[in-house]
């Protein structure tokens, strides 16, 4: 029997083949921030449930969110949520068949990154401003 030799046909391109591009990074970020936001939603439900439970339990949950680790989680959640929301706006525009012009796509990618960081920092400045 002859040895089977794999034909050297071109394979479907995959992640490692492509040169990393901003738009590709944004696609990955959109999915990753969506998943991170899901973790944040679990934290939100925990917080609301604690508020509906008892003073002692609510105080414990508030202490967790007041701890540096809890704050870090919430800061990450804020950024993921804002980034996913801004990225989602781009997707809604694309869904209408508009916004595929490459310079515009690149501009929106940059605007999403800069905007998400700016809005996140702004929300936290407001947050620390209103905290008693």
């Amino acid at each position: 029997m002859t040895k089977t030799e794999h034909a050297r046909r071109p394979l479907s391109p995959h992640l490692q083949i492509y040169r990393p591009m901003l738009t590709m990074l944004m696609s990955i970020f959109h999915r990753a921030t969506g998943m991170a936001t899901a973790v944040g939603v679990v934290l939100l439900v925990w917080w609301l449930s604690a508020a509906a439970t008892s003073d002692a339990y609510f105080d414990m949950v508030q202490r967790f969110f007041g701890h540096w680790f809890g704050r870090m989680l919430l800061f990450g959640f804020t950024w993921a949520l804002v980034h996913h929301a801004l990225g989602g706006l781009r997707h809604l525009l694309w869904d209408t068949g508009r916004g595929f012009d490459l310079p515009l796509v690149e501009w929106m990618a940059r605007a999403t990154i800069i905007g998400s960081v700016a809005v996140t920092i702004l929300l936290w400045i407001i947050g620390y401003g209103v905290m008693p």
Partner: peptide, 23 residues
Amino acid sequence: AISNIPLVIFLVIFVIRHLGASR
């Protein structure tokens, strides 16, 4: 996605208004 836009803005305002609030 569309319904999330106004609702999440509401949620963010709600959370910020209740930072440090008592139960």
